[in-house]
Design a protein around this nucleic acid. Structure first.
Lengths: 161, 161
DNA sequence: CAACATTAAATTGCACGCAAATTAATTTTG
DNA sequence: CAAAATTAATTTGCGTGCAATTTAATGTTG
């Protein structure tokens, strides 16, 4: 008879418990991400924007005229994701994409008048989201910082291997 | 001259600050989700599994022989996402999909021997992920519960509107 | 019991997200 | 300075995720 079958039942139970969806931090993050997406969708639909497109605009409102690479660094996305997304943002009239005259490899993404004019609306969206999350400013800050630390540690351990 | 231009500069600054990517809880969740995906990928590649496929297996290890609808409720996904994903899990030999004899509308998803045999490996994956997150069990519990509350509140406010 | 409504999956169309390959421009270096 | 290496962006292919439609089976109701 194998030794493993003699281990206490409690150990079995704890191990199994650790493998449930409800116990997984990754699944909690996964679900919260979908919940944000679903909450943003109706708020962004009237602007013809998707949630990731809105995040790109947030980045551009903070710092206009960035290269695709720089936006990718800020958002943790590669050009394979950003190139088509930015084309759609351009087609929708929110940004322009122009090759850098000094380095034709780079594309400079700039807000249009329409893109800049959207920024004031974003405060209203932010208010709606805040209401939906039901978090205090302090709760938001703590949770956000904990997630940023988590992301940082995972990204670091990724780079190490 | 419009009244708005007379508001103190500090108010401008605070408002603008609130709209940066780094201040957004939604972006912290978005980034953490991507970080988890990137951390899981190399661990799951050798099993030919994607991260969402692995989450479905987690659900099935917890409760075998579920309908597509039930899996969707557990994971917050609809059949449009699950149907093709489950077909790929079946093609990979981890699950079977069989129509319920008592209600032919339903499809019962069951683990195969191969699917069940993968469960012990999952403890190793879990250990690798835990190491990458660098969180104590207590930190994981707190962060997970905070995210679950957040998701619950957003889902509720979604249903209300 | 037959028309109607409801339900469960599957399908279709579109937008990410990422890996890998490609293209074009710039930099390095022999 | 010309060949090689590097870099930035695009493109391609695949797997989600979701809305909307379709199909088939079950329930409901007049």
């Amino acid at each position: 008879m194998p030794i493993m079958t003699t281990k206490p039942a409690k150990f079995e139970a704890i191990s199994d418990e650790a493998l449930t969806l409800g116990q997984q931090l990754c699944f909690a993050v996964y679900s919260a991400g979908h919940a944000f997406n679903r909450t943003y969708k109706p708020l962004l639909d009237r602007f013809g924007l998707t949630y990731p497109q809105y995040l790109v605009l947030l980045a551009l409102w903070q710092q206009d005229k960035m290269t695709v690479k720089r936006i990718g660094e800020d958002m943790g996305l590669d050009s394979g994701t950003l190139s088509p997304l930015l084309k759609r943002l351009e087609a929708a009239g929110y940004v322009t994409r122009l090759r850098d005259r000094d380095d034709e490899r780079q594309v400079i993404v700039s807000l249009t008048e329409k893109g800049r004019n959207l920024k004031p609306e974003a405060f209203g969206i932010l208010a709606d989201i805040s209401k939906a999350t039901g978090c205090t400013l302090e709760e938001v800050r703590e949770l956000r910082e904990a997630l940023q630390r988590l992301t940082q540690r995972m990204t670091n351990s990724q780079r190490e291997s």
